[in-house]
Design a protein around this nucleic acid. Structure first.
Length: 607
RNA sequence: GCACCCGUAGCUCAAUUGGCUAGAGCGUCUGACUACGGAUCAGAAGGUUCCAGGUUCAACUCCUGGCGGGUGCACCA
């Protein structure tokens, strides 16, 4: 039942009708060419007005064009305006300020787009004309460790981005680069063999593995002999010892089961989960190739990639300044003991992904602290495989920390990291309390389901809302509030839409056919205009890797809908007015649902 | 020490190629309730966008220099 609503089929004609700003842009570019045949119109763009008082769409490009041709921008604007024919969409085009063109869309033009949407031809966005293949690498939990609050951001942002790219028609490959290899397994193996509690493992495998690690790690810190034992276990694992391999695989298996539980709750899926160990067989060859090509060299027994001097020292990630002297800060690809580093794994991973999927783009959703690592990785890869690197865009989508309400890194009261499972439990419990307060008459099962959607949605939304590069404060009260830019507010707006539509029984007669659409009230028009910008926002999210653009858009839409709801009775209206208002409800509901869905948030008809 | 990120209303946060009068929520103050579910809506007050220069017709946005906070700086990932 959802697919019919969420997967509209597009026709080419609907696409052209849908993007009013593109039609305006085409007309504007033609008018500029008529005035200035030699002008470069590639940057003559029409965008939504940041301030509705000036109009619906604007172009500020004429100012730049005038400057280039040493013309008076105001005069140029007037000449262009005289050649501009957009009567189909706008009543008049205004010139303001130094040479802005402001477009005000006629309600009839809006109505046409709404009608096409009513016929199911689009939902205010269009599939990409040139689909790209995009690999998205996110979440990346570690084996034998619990997923914690730190994984929310990568998982939520990454999942939202992959949903947006898919919705826009791109070919997306998601890959969970699980931490399933590394020195910690020496200690874990030692613990498994000597102090494993089978009952505890059965009850809570991750907790038991975590205990093993902590105990052995403390022992290793205290006694060098113990550390040596752990190292021997690691060496045996790396050498392919059958017993150690079997134990290691068992640790991965039980960890994966825990990951799957969390991902199941979050509704997150991956196309692949090729962990670090997957690349083990290739690491030696990567290093040898880097050595053979003179990109890496030996230093102090290790092998590293050093600066090639192509960048100024200040912006060269392979250099570090110590006491006024620039010295080497190489990317190590082999340790002095012969082991490999995660740089090596990451290089092999890029190589594998390019060979396997030929992506146009690889996106890493990883916290900002690793920015220097990714700069080194991307630069090293470009030196290693210049031809391949030229064809792919490698992007590090970084994000800031989650802070507690005291402004310090988010921890439990006892100072431990917050486990993701516990966090989700608490979100649902808190949401249930609110739902029970507001709606005590609902059956318990329904309240639980609503609480699940609201609780998980609140956590996800609170995480996606802030500009991802900055840190944000985690606040239960704020994310669960019914007022303000929150998931509950948006979900509530959706339930109000659904409530009206349940009562507007003849809606089925409205959608599917050609409803009479007549936009008159300012609050009707305000909703309609916002609906039209859905596609632009989705494209901006994909362009900047920033789901918060979509959050802000949806909040704006919900606000406009609330005003419309307040001032424009739907069910008491008649004729074309009623049909128009029902349609606005229907389309607002669909956009809210689709928008929340690509944020990874489910919707509900009741709260 | 060096590099990167951040600094916007009392608090938490926005601001779509640099665009016209910098926006929300909370908190404070004032209105609208037997409601198409008020879990709402309308309005008021609240700003030298850390500071100082610079570029530009136009700067929260770009550049330079400070100040304040965070993070990272060879064999962890």
């Amino acid at each position: 039942m959802r697919s019919t609503l969420l997967a509209p089929v597009f026709s080419v004609r609907a696409f052209a009708e849908l993007m009013l700003h593109l039609k305006l842009q085409t007309s504007l570019q033609a008018a500029v060419r008529a005035v200035l045949p030699d002008a470069d119109v590639a940057n003559v763009l029409v965008r939504p007005c940041p301030d509705a008082r000036h109009g619906d769409y604007q172009s500020n490009a004429l100012i730049a064009v005038a400057k280039q041709g040493k013309l008076n921008p105001r005069q140029l604007a007037e000449q262009v305006q005289a050649r501009l024919d957009v009567t189909e969409i706008c009543d008049a085009v205004e010139i303001s300020g130094p040479g802005f063109l402001n477009f005000r869309v006629r309600p009839a033009a809006l109505a046409g787009v709404l009608q096409a949407a009513a016929r199911g031809e689009h939902l205010f966005f269009a599939k990409a004309a040139q689909p790209r293949t995009v690999v998205i690498d996110f979440s990346s939990p570690n084996v034998a460790k619990p997923m914690h609050v730190g994984h929310i951001r990568s998982t939520g942002i990454g999942d939202s981005l992959q949903r947006v790219f898919r919705l826009l028609g791109h070919r997306v490959i998601t890959d969970n680069h699980i931490g399933d290899w590394g020195t910690q397994f020496g200690k874990l193996l030692l613990g498994w063999k000597q102090i494993l509690d089978r009952d505890a493992l059965a009850a809570d495998a991750i907790a038991e593995l975590e205990r093993l690690y902590k105990v052995i790690n403390a022992e290793c810190d205290a006694t060098p002999a113990r550390l040596e034992e752990a190292k021997q276990e690691l060496v045996k694992l790396q050498a392919g010892d059958a017993e150690n391999i079997a134990v290691w695989q068992e640790m991965i298996r039980v960890s994966q089961a825990q990951f799957d539980t969390i991902y199941g709750r979050l509704g997150v899926k991956f196309d692949h989960a090729l962990g670090e160990s997957f690349y083990n067989p290739q690491l030696g060859a990567v290093v040898n190739d880097l050595l053979a090509r003179g990109i890496a060299r030996e230093s102090e027994g290790a092998v590293g990639v050093f600066s090639d001097g192509s960048l100024p020292p200040k912006s060269d990630p392979f250099l570090v300044n110590r006491d006024g002297e620039w010295s080497a800060d190489p990317a190590l690809v082999r340790k002095s003991d012969g082991g490999f580093n995660y740089m090596t794994t990451d290089l092999a991973t890029v190589d594998y992904r390019l060979r396997t999927w030929s992506p146009d783009e690889i996106v890493y959703v990883v916290d900002d602290r690793q920015a220097p690592h990714f700069r080194k990785l991307f630069l090293t890869f470009a030196r290693w495989q210049p031809e391949a690197a030229a064809k792919v865009k490698l992007v590090h989508v970084g994000f800031g920390k989650i802070l507690g309400e005291d402004g310090k890194p988010f921890k439990t009261r006892s100072g431990d990291t917050v486990k993701l499972g516990d966090l989700l439990d608490e979100a649902e419990a808190r949401a249930l309390k609110v739902v029970t307060e507001k709606n005590p008459d609902l059956p318990g099962a329904e309240r639980n389901e609503i609480a699940r959607i609201v609780g998980l949605g609140s956590v996800k939304y609170a995480d996606l809302l802030p500009n991802r590069q900055s840190d944000y404060q985690f606040s239960w009260d704020k994310m669960l509030a019914l007022q303000g830019n929150t998931a509950p507010y948006l979900l509530y707006a959706h339930t109000r839409v659904r409530s009206i539509l349940r009562k507007g029984a003849e809606l089925s007669a409205v959608s599917g056919q050609q409803p009479a659409v007549s936009l008159n009230a300012p609050d009707e028009i305000a909703v309609a205009k916002q609906l039209l910008n859905f596609g632009l926002v989705l494209e901006a999210v994909a362009e900047e890797y920033r789901p918060n653009f979509l959050c802000n858009y949806l909040y704006d839409l919900a606000g406009r809908f609330a005003r419309f709801y307040e001032s424009c009775p739907v069910l008491k209206a008649e004729g074309a007015e009623r049909a128009t208002r029902l349609l606005l409800c229907e389309l607002t509901g669909r956009v809210l649902r689709q928008g929340l869905e690509v944020l990874g948030i489910e919707t509900t008809d009741q709260m």
